[in-house]
Simulated assay, not measured.
Amino acid sequence: MPRRVTAELDLDLGASVDLIFQIAAARGVPVVDENLTFAQGERRYTATELVDQAGSRLHRLTAEEGPLSVRYDALVAGPAQSPRTSDLDTIGYLRPSRYCQSDEVFAQARRQFRGLAGRDLLAAVSGFVASTVTYTPGLSFGTDSAVTTLATGQGVCRDYAHLVIALLRAMDMPARYAACFAPGLEPMDFHAVVEAFVEGRWEVVDATRLAPRAHFVRIATGRDAADTAFLTTLSGIAALASVEVTAVALGDLVVDDPEDTVLLR
């Protein structure tokens, strides 16, 4: 099903700010039409595009002091190609990472999910996080981790994803973080979900259950939110004044059963 996605970012910059944006659909996503602009008044900047091993597209530019407007829109049609996976990838996605401390939740995961594997494990972990964490915008912080979310029982999509990843890795299932556009999401924003490696392929899990997975559009993939931030300031000072994201399926949204197997498209 075709999907139209957009992102509008407005920033106030100091002098000579070096920025990285990850807001464009990933390599392998079937983009029919796409436009990405960076502007300061009449001045237009051309960003350097870098593509990582997972197909995430990073756009880097150095801009001068003043307001910067970033605009992205794309029409996406059809299923995407999943990023290639190697043995090295699956090893990396088993290790603890900054926000997914699988070593710190190891004991609880082993007690709670003992004897489970494959899709049974995936369903149990997703169900546990969905039932014990409350979606609470504005009450979590960018430095919160899976351990924080487990303790507080609250957060937003990134927090749900970090906790699912940490618990799955603690049970020896490779899991990774994916940022995406999500038609049907309410409130609308960039969305974060999990991909778990089951029976030789990456299956998408969303413990928030706020939008149908079949319509998601991949933006970036990594170990956790540190790898997939939509904006990174490498040097200088940048204040984010506003962000507006839209994602619309050009047709009826499917009904999402959490037990169904879905691949990120």
Rank of each mutant, 00 (worst) to 15 (best):
R176C: 02
A109F: 09
L185D: 08
T246K: 14
M171N: 05
V17N: 00
T261A: 13
A192E: 01
C157T: 06
A124F: 00
A238T: 03
W202I: 07
Y93G: 00
T149P: 03
A166W: 01
G115H: 11
A175E: 01
T148P: 02
M188I: 09
A247F: 13
L50Y: 15
D252R: 15
T261D: 15
G127L: 09
C180P: 04
V193G: 06
I91P: 00
L50P: 00
I237K: 13
F106A: 09
A47C: 10
G55S: 11
N35H: 04
L264K: 05
P96T: 13
F128Y: 04
V194A: 06
A241F: 06
L36I: 03
V147E: 07
P183Y: 11
L13Y: 00
A214V: 05
V105D: 14
S140A: 15
T232N: 07
I23E: 13
V204S: 02
L9D: 12
V125E: 02
V29C: 11
D227A: 09
R201Q: 14
A170C: 06
T152G: 07
A107E: 15
R43F: 08
A24P: 03
L163K: 12
P137Q: 15
C100F: 01
G236C: 14
G127Q: 08
F141G: 12
R57I: 10
E42Q: 13
D12W: 04
L121H: 01
Y72H: 10
I237D: 13
Q108G: 13
A211P: 01
D52C: 10
A226Q: 03
H215M: 09
E42P: 09
E34S: 08
P2H: 10
L167P: 00
R44M: 13
T148I: 12
D252S: 14
V204L: 06
E8N: 11
F141V: 07
F190G: 05
F216S: 10
Q101S: 14
T132V: 09
L253W: 06
R114W: 09
E259F: 08
L210A: 14
Q108C: 11
R176K: 12
T37P: 15
T46D: 11
A166V: 00
L168E: 00
V70S: 10
Y160R: 10
W202L: 05
G28R: 14
T149M: 07
L122R: 01
D257G: 08
L250G: 02
R111P: 00
V76L: 07
P83R: 15
R223I: 00
A211M: 14
R201K: 07
S126M: 06
E49A: 15
V105W: 12
S126A: 15
V147G: 09
R176W: 00
V164Q: 04
A214S: 08
L88K: 04
T90S: 02
A226M: 04
T221W: 03
A192L: 06
L167E: 06
G127Y: 11
L75A: 04
A192W: 01
